[in-house]
Simulated assay, not measured.
Amino acid sequence: MGFRWYSGSDRTGRIPRLFSQLVYYMADKMSADELASEVLKLLEEEGDANMRAKMLFEIARQYRMEGDRPRQIEYARRALEQFDPLAANFPSVAEEYADCCFQLLGGLEEEDSDERFVELAPLALAILVWSAKGVVDPTTRDLAGSFLTRGLYLLAEKYKDRTLFGLAYATAAFLLHTPSEGPVPLVVAHACARRLGLRDDAERLLTQIHEIDLSGEYLDLARSDALLYPV
């Protein structure tokens, strides 16, 4: 059929051909509203959930390019509702799935609600999981990881829950093994190690913080056990 990215229900090639024309050749000649109108017509004919999600993702991307954040989020959310992670063709749209997850995490540096964190934590976890498959860029992975680590740690502190401390520790440890080294995962891991009674690990982490924290700010936080700040 010639469209290797397509794994939907249309065996004639008509839907992927028209979709490609719209997204890759006509998008710069149409407004986001016009593109959405045409893509939604194809969506009604497409029987595969992940291909429908891909179409909705492209609409969201077009609105993002126009700076229309409310419509962008609307279509990113609609796309996320369509994705089927259990389907055999899901890996082919995993990058779009992770992107939608990240779009819905936007602005959470100002969000401290426990309920909001619990609602969105699965999105951050999905980004970390699929980052191991190479479909997530490092910046997206690190921001999602920081959000998840911070939220788990603060919930653990609030409820004094060892399971939550363990989850925060595991997430921070994952980030320690990514190329973009930084002090934040080290400090979170150190705080969790202390709460979990992992004294040797806590000492090793304190040494690593000392090695990379040129300002001494994070080392002081770790030593004073005062990790109650926005990550």
Results as ranks from 00 to 15, higher is better:
E217G: 05
L206C: 06
H177Q: 13
L176R: 11
F165T: 06
L143A: 14
F147S: 07
A191G: 10
E211W: 00
A126F: 01
R194H: 05
C101T: 11
H210P: 00
A170W: 02
G107M: 02
D142L: 11
V135G: 03
S146P: 06
E115V: 05
S113K: 01
L205H: 06
L108G: 02
Q103I: 04
L164M: 10
G145H: 08
E111L: 00
D112Q: 09
A172V: 12
T171V: 15
S131Y: 05
S113L: 04
H177I: 10
S215M: 11
F147R: 11
L186N: 10
S131V: 09
H177W: 09
S215T: 14
H177Y: 12
H210S: 10
A126L: 01
R141H: 13
H210F: 03
A126T: 02
A189D: 12
F117D: 11
A144H: 12
D200N: 00
L155W: 07
T140Y: 04
R204D: 03
R150C: 08
V184I: 14
L214C: 10
W130V: 10
F174Y: 15
G216K: 06
V136F: 01
L105F: 10
E110I: 03
H190G: 05
K133N: 11
H210N: 11
Q208N: 07
P179S: 06
G182I: 11
S131T: 13
D137A: 08
L105T: 13
C101W: 06
H190S: 09
P138R: 10
G166I: 08
A193N: 08
L205V: 10
I127T: 10
A144W: 09
P183K: 15
G145T: 04
S180K: 15
G197I: 01
L155M: 06
V118Q: 04
G151Y: 01
S146W: 12
V187E: 09
L152M: 06
S180Q: 15
A173K: 14
R162G: 00
S146F: 10
L164W: 04
L105Y: 04
G145F: 01
L198E: 12
S215A: 13
